[in-house]
């Protein structure tokens, strides 16, 4: 068993300022890293004998349209079965150039997760073997989970958001 504090110390010692902003929302260790160091961070977490984060739980995206220069966020959830602990890694990317290396070489499961994230957020996973849309149709020309695409037709007048608490 290993605690969040020990993971933080080990990562900070090994990566220095490549890993930053450690926090623990609801007890789950979360930190940020840069797109160029994501591969080495995840590889270290996976191959370290002590940490053993050998299970990729999830990859997903988040869009923060108001955050200048880091509008898009890729969120990785890793899990160490041996230590029974999870962690979350976030990488912020600019909307103008949302490039991040793929982790398909480390986890086969990342293939579709990254395709889904590309499909919905337009994040470009460089080096991905087959980066195309997965759930939406191929000739769609936008990435629908971005916040600028409202769920309902914005010109409708029969639904007043203020009245329905939206």
């Amino acid at each position: 068993m290993i605690s969040n504090q020990e993971i933080v110390e080990e990562l900070a010692a090994h990566f220095g300022d490549k890993v930053l902003e450690f926090e623990e929302p609801n007890g789950l260790l979360t930190f940020n890293t840069k797109a160029e160091s994501i591969i080495e961070v995840i590889q270290y977490l996976k191959e370290s004998d002590r940490l053993r984060f050998r299970f990729l739980t999830d990859i997903t995206g988040v869009h923060y349209p108001d955050a200048e220069g880091k509008e898009l966020c890729v969120v990785y959830h890793l899990h160490s079965f041996e230590n029974a602990i999870r962690l979350r890694i976030k990488v912020y990317l600019p909307e103008a150039k949302p490039d991040i290396p793929t982790v398909t070489s480390l986890f086969a499961a990342a293939n579709w997760m990254e395709r889904e994230t590309f499909d919905f957020y337009g994040i470009n996973f460089t080096g991905h073997p087959n980066l195309k849309r997965i759930l939406n149709m191929d000739d769609m020309d936008y990435h629908p989970m971005r916040k600028q695409y409202p769920l309902e037709d914005a010109t409708r007048e029969d639904k007043i958001d203020a009245l329905f608490g939206r």
Partner: peptide, 10 residues
């Protein structure tokens, strides 16, 4: 896949 995608997350 995606034939019955219903955009739950959106």
């Amino acid at each position: 896949v995606g034939y019955i995608h219903r955009a739950f997350e959106k």
